[in-house]
Simulated assay, not measured.
Amino acid sequence: MEITIKIDNRKKEAKALIEYLKNLSFVEIDSEKPRYNKDTEKAIADALNGIGISKAKSVKDLFKKLEE
């Protein structure tokens, strides 16, 4: 079972609690919130890596490739 707890880390006590939790072996802290949902993040990564990219010399060639 997983439990998600949101902590406002602007307070001194909250920072101390986070540091304590980091030392527990059964606690995983994910402090970075992704920019987008996982599908969008994957699409961005694929585009940056050239996966699924269609290259064409002209718009006419591009439309021919897209119709295939």
Rank of each mutant, 00 (worst) to 15 (best):
Met1Cys: 05
Met1Pro: 07
Met1Ala: 10
Glu2Lys: 15
Thr4Cys: 03
Thr4Ile: 12
Ile5Asp: 01
Ile5Gly: 01
Ile7Cys: 02
Ile7Trp: 03
Asn9Ser: 12
Asn9Lys: 08
Arg10Ala: 10
Lys11Gln: 03
Lys11Met: 03
Lys11Thr: 10
Lys11Ser: 10
Lys11Arg: 05
Lys12Phe: 04
Lys12Val: 08
Glu13Leu: 11
Glu13Thr: 12
Lys15Ala: 13
Lys15Tyr: 04
Ala16Ile: 11
Ala16Asn: 11
Ala16Arg: 12
Ile18Arg: 05
Ile18Trp: 02
Glu19Tyr: 01
Glu19Ser: 14
Tyr20Cys: 06
Tyr20Gln: 13
Leu21Gly: 10
Leu21Asn: 07
Lys22Phe: 04
Lys22Ala: 06
Lys22Glu: 13
Asn23Leu: 14
Asn23Phe: 00
Leu24Gln: 13
Phe26Pro: 00
Phe26Cys: 04
Phe26Glu: 14
Val27Gly: 04
Glu28Arg: 15
Glu28Gln: 12
Ile29Asn: 09
Asp30His: 10
Asp30Met: 09
Asp30Val: 13
Glu32Asp: 13
Glu32Tyr: 07
Lys33Glu: 14
Lys33Cys: 06
Arg35Gly: 03
Arg35Phe: 07
Arg35Lys: 09
Arg35Asp: 02
Tyr36Asn: 04
Asn37Ile: 03
Lys38Val: 04
Asp39Glu: 14
Thr40Cys: 01
Glu41Ala: 13
Lys42Phe: 04
Lys42Ser: 11
Lys42Glu: 12
Lys42Cys: 00
Ala43Pro: 01
Ala43Leu: 11
Ile44Cys: 07
Ile44Val: 15
Asp46Ile: 01
Asp46Trp: 01
Ala47Tyr: 08
Ala47Glu: 10
Leu48Gln: 13
Leu48Gly: 05
Asn49Thr: 02
Gly50Pro: 04
Gly50Thr: 12
Gly50Leu: 08
Gly50Asp: 05
Ile51Lys: 14
Ile51Ser: 02
Ile51Pro: 00
Gly52Asn: 04
Gly52Pro: 00
Gly52Trp: 03
Ile53Tyr: 08
Ile53Val: 15
Ser54Arg: 09
Ser54Thr: 15
Lys55Ser: 10
Lys55Tyr: 12
Lys55Val: 11
Ala56His: 07
Ala56Cys: 01
Lys57Glu: 10
Lys57Ala: 14
Lys57Ile: 04
Ser58Gly: 05
Lys60Ala: 11
Lys60Glu: 15
Lys60Ile: 06
Asp61Asn: 13
Asp61Ala: 12
Asp61Trp: 01
Phe63His: 06
Phe63Ala: 05
Leu66Lys: 06
Leu66Pro: 01
Leu66Ser: 00
Leu66Gln: 05
Glu67His: 07
Glu67Gly: 03
Glu67Thr: 05
Glu68Gln: 11
Glu68Arg: 11
Glu68Ala: 05
